[in-house]
């Protein structure tokens, strides 16, 4: 990978952020075609994202809202008076 232009990794990230121009994307793709090290790098980045996104969602416990409501400051009719 050391011989590759630094901008290739930059292009990969821009691509992942959907911000790579069409022209640069072509350059990246043709480079990936030739360079196995960069291909691996790119694959690892995409895999990283997939792994991060594979983590399941956590839900709040049943009594969460109740707990929050119980901890709110006592009701004040005039919100403006609070401070």
């Amino acid at each position: 990978m050391n011989t590759c232009p630094d901008k290739m990794v930059h292009y990969m990230h821009e691509y992942l952020d959907e911000e790579l121009s069409h022209e640069d994307e072509k350059e990246l793709k043709s480079h990936l075609h030739e360079c196995e090290a960069c291909r691996t790098h790119f694959h690892e980045l995409k895999r990283t994202i997939a792994l991060v996104q594979s983590t399941s969602h956590i839900n709040a416990p049943q009594d969460f809202t109740e707990k929050v409501m119980n901890r709110l400051p006592k009701e004040k009719k005039e919100v403006g008076m609070r401070r």
Partner: peptide, 27 residues
């Protein structure tokens, strides 16, 4: 409604966002 002093209306806001907020915090 909350701004008018209706505290219960805030409970509905909590219900809508609690899972998302707790998930971000957990991660």
């Amino acid at each position: 409604q909350v701004l008018k002093g209706d505290q219960n209306a805030f409970g509905e806001i909590v219900e809508l966002y609690k899972d998302k907020v707790i998930h971000v915090c957990y991660r």
